Simulated scan of single mutants.
Amino acid sequence: MSSGDTSGTGRTAGVEALVTPWVVARVAGPSMTPTVRSGDRLLARRVAAGTAVRDGAVVLARFPARPGLLVVKRVRGAVPGGHWVEGDNPFVTDDSRAFGPAVVVGRVVGRLWPRPGRLPCRPA
């Protein structure tokens, strides 16, 4: 996942927050296939530090172990230190299975391109 709009100045547990309230993020990689695919553009809203995010939500998150990496993942539950997040593609492990709890910095509201609309709460 990458985006030119996601650099931050605020920090939470060593993790940069999103600078603006709304972010357009470009997905890079297969970890959330089939829900979103590489090249999709997503609209996300910044999440305040410590905000509870419901299970099943698609989010932008950072791992304290890799604070420069911004990922799109699905929340599986709240755990000490943040949220447990996983990709919908079980064959890709760039998620909490590899890096531990993540800090959620944004909640994905919907896909802007190429198929505009809301994302399902559960994997397709």
Rank of each mutant, 00 (worst) to 15 (best):
P30A: 15
G39H: 02
R66W: 01
H83C: 04
V85R: 07
V36T: 14
A98F: 00
K73H: 12
V36Y: 10
K73C: 07
P67V: 10
N89V: 04
T93Q: 11
R46S: 14
A28M: 01
L60H: 03
P34S: 09
G39Q: 04
V47S: 09
P30K: 03
L18T: 07
R74Y: 03
V15D: 08
P67D: 04
P67W: 10
L42D: 05
P67I: 11
S96W: 05
A28W: 00
R46F: 02
G29Q: 04
V72L: 04
D55S: 08
P21W: 12
L60V: 06
G100T: 10
D5V: 00
R54I: 00
S7M: 09
G10T: 10
V59C: 10
V72Y: 05
V58C: 04
P90D: 07
A28S: 15
P30M: 01
V103E: 12
G4H: 09
G14L: 11
R62L: 05
P34R: 11
S96Y: 07
L42F: 08
A61S: 13
V24K: 04
R74H: 10
A49Q: 12
G87V: 05
A28C: 03
R46L: 03
A61N: 06
V53C: 04
V24N: 01
R62A: 02
